[in-house]
């Protein structure tokens, strides 16, 4: 009897199942002080995770370290993004590879129109990806479609970047940038800070409109109320520079009731 050679099935790796972001034992030092002390996190495409935690627990440090801000020194551990070493990339390269950080305090840039800024960023990313740049007319068409979807007035496009914007307008401008730049991974750093409930709802709607199976989001917040509107798949508590606890969305409500006292003790 002859044996048929057995075919080996190639194992298919589905991109959507693979972790988009893997943070392993991350240690980050700012001004000589260790803020993150061995943090771990895995985030897949299509998922929205929330990072909650008391003030000073390292939430913004995590966001800045991911985006590559100077002065945030990674002393140990690593961050893999799509399987690549994120920490080796310049900030602009991280953005071009699909990482977006919505700033807690967006920066004002006088004399540069919002559209000019958006077009510069959009085309820089296209160029990095080997795609053709859009001219002024093509870009305006695209950006107008986004402002319409998000219910943002075109007036905001003509004004200089964030100059004279209210707190709510600044955050909406962050969401507009996210919509235009179309990232794979969006990190929202305390997007709710300084917003009243109406502005918060508008911003949350904008973020929800951008949820997709291809995109992952990391929502950093101190308060549970943002998570009433942007409902996460997982909630992590960052305390003392590490993830102290993880759970489902109900964890956020529990924290709202009990506060961070138990974690403050754990961190001490």
């Amino acid at each position: 009897m002859t044996r048929k050679p057995q075919k080996t099935k190639p194992t298919k790796v589905k991109m959507s199942k693979k972790a988009l972001l893997e943070i392993k034992a991350l240690h980050v030092t700012v001004d000589g002080k260790e803020i993150l002390k061995g943090m771990d996190l895995v985030l897949n495409r299509g998922e929205v995770h929330a990072i909650m935690g008391p003030n000073g627990s390292g939430k913004s440090t995590l966001a800045y370290a991911m985006a590559g801000r100077g002065g945030y020194e990674v002393t140990k551990g690593r961050i893999l993004y799509g399987g690549r070493n994120l920490l080796r990339m310049e900030p602009e390269e991280r953005a071009a590879e699909g990482l977006f950080l919505a700033f807690q305090y967006p920066v004002e840039i006088p004399g540069v129109a919002n559209t000019t800024f958006l077009k510069e960023a959009f085309n820089a990313i296209r160029k990095h990806r080997g795609e053709g740049e859009l001219d002024a007319m093509q870009f305006l068409k695209l950006v107008r479609q986004k402002t319409k979807e998000l219910g943002i007035s075109d007036d905001m496009l003509r004004r200089p970047v964030n100059v004279g914007f209210s707190g709510g307008e600044k955050k909406r401008n962050e969401v507009l940038q996210m919509a235009v730049l179309n990232p794979d991974l969006a990190v929202l750093d305390e997007t709710d800070s300084g917003l009243d409930i109406d502005a918060l709802k508008v911003v949350a709607e904008g973020v929800n409109a951008l949820r997709s199976p291809e995109r992952a989001m990391l929502v950093i917040t101190h308060y549970q109320r943002l998570l009433d509107y942007i409902v996460p798949d997982r909630v992590h508590v960052l305390a003392g520079g590490r993830i102290a606890r993880s759970g489902g969305k109900e964890l956020a409500r529990e924290l709202e009731e009990k506060g961070y006292a138990e974690f403050a003790e754990a961190a001490a």
């Binding site: 985006a67 590559g68 801000r69 100077g70 310049e90 900030p91 602009e92 991280r94 953005a95 071009a96 950080l101 700033f103 967006p106 920066v107 840039i109 540069v112 000019t116 800024f117 510069e120 960023a121 959009f122 820089a124 990313i125 990095h128 940038q177 730049l181």
Partner: peptide, 16 residues
């Protein structure tokens, strides 16, 4: 940093 975090290379960001 804000400009670079949006994908604008450093030299172009300085120019802006």
């Amino acid at each position: 940093f804000y400009l670079r975090s949006r994908g604008i290379p450093e030299a172009a960001a300085r120019g802006l």
